[in-house]
Write a protein that binds this DNA or RNA. Structure first.
Lengths: 215, 215
DNA sequence: ACAAATTTCAAACGAGCGTTTAAATTGCCC
DNA sequence: GGGCAATTTAAACGCTCGTTTGAAATTTGT
């Protein structure tokens, strides 16, 4: 019942959101001006202020438009894992829980370019030192993270809470970095992590699960 | 022999670098103006342009001043691990190599606040969509990363190259996120990962090693 | 101690930023 | 088809940005 419905937008508003999302992903929030956005979206300069109020409110709208349904899906999958385990009178497996978190994320990012843009945008927002940007994001994510953490605790009762906390932070870091499609070139080769297949999802789940479950 | 010596700076230049480093870490590069920097450093507005040329050249100087010696230390430890293993006529252990990469980094970050600032600055730079910032960083890191990757390949010959590549990307992502000291609040609690003890280093090494070595 | 080089300083430059305004245009209902 | 609200438009606002300038102050070399 943690399902949240995002607002709906007119055609003009959506064109602004799409363009802003793309430019934010490509050049960052600060480097993208309202003039660039409205120019590329072929709307008047004042359109952003008219439809969204301020630039910051536009940023929030870009974030919430896709983050809300994505998080709903993550919530749904985690619920399914926990309920299935409960019905079978066992604790959920770590890799199941990790997958419930990772699979919707990477599947979402692989659907289309707009979603890829959104992921890049989200990650730069997360990494922004400016806390006002991060706090909106984290406040939305917090209920889900809390639930995941509690589930991890019951699945790994021998791991101290502080250690488990660290491991979850490592997990989120690995996810963000992979999703941002930033990669350190190795032997001069750039390699796109988020490819068309499911190998990246499976590999990430097993990588994280191995680190999580290690004694 | 990959040792690189950074340039030396006058007292004024160092005060500018220290202040810029701190402000970049706290508010990000774009949000930090030359007026803020020179004001806080108690030097004239024109001092940055006089001593460093442009704002971008200042950013590069802030990066290179500490990244060069840090990378030298990482290189030194990795060399030691590889040479010791070679002398004992065995392949280096994965956790040894991972530790050679992680230990200098987190030890460096724990030394003082200026180093913490530098790590935050570096991570935001890494996550900046603007490629011109990232490319300088990655070009410096690349020789070391290549060496680490080659060592991982010999230690884990059964793991396909593409998979190993992914795992190294996860590793770097986890490191960056941990070093940035950004954390997702869990159960409303913010927790500082980079604490005063060695637990974070050991935990990170074992977390990453478990993911790396998993079959 | 004095001339030359280096560094600091106050002031200004043009450019670009987010936002506001008020008029022009469009879409819609009765 | 006319009246009214919603939208689009062009223009301008005040502000801050990085950078430049030329003179003043300081340091350096002999």
């Amino acid at each position: 019942m943690n399902h949240i419905t995002p607002p709906t937008y007119t055609a003009t508003q959506e064109r602004i959101l799409d363009t802003a999302e793309h430019l934010f992903a490509e050049h960052g929030i600060h480097a993208t001006t309202l003039r660039t956005i409205t120019g590329a979206a072929k709307v008047n300069l004042a359109a952003v202020n008219y439809h969204f109020g301020t630039k910051e409110q536009l940023i929030q709208a870009v974030l919430l438009r896709r983050l809300t349904p994505l998080n709903n899906e993550r919530q749904r999958q985690l619920d399914t894992v926990l309920q299935t385990a409960s019905a079978e009178k066992r604790t959920a497996h770590v890799d199941e829980m990790i997958r419930a978190f990772i699979e919707p994320t990477l599947h979402f990012a692989q659907q289309n370019d707009a979603n890829k843009d959104f992921m890049s945008f989200t990650c730069t927002m997360m990494m922004n030192p400016n806390n006002e940007f991060r706090s909106l994001f984290t406040s939305i994510m917090e209920p889900l993270i809390d639930q995941l953490f509690a589930a991890l605790q019951t699945a790994l009762p021998t791991v101290p809470v502080a250690i488990l906390h660290m491991r979850l932070q490592f997990t989120i870091g690995a996810m963000i970095f992979a999703m941002r499609e930033i990669d350190i070139p190795i032997s001069g080769q750039h390699k796109q992590l988020v490819g068309g297949s499911k190998t990246i999802i499976n590999e990430m789940v097993s990588f994280i699960s191995a680190g999580m479950e290690q004694s």
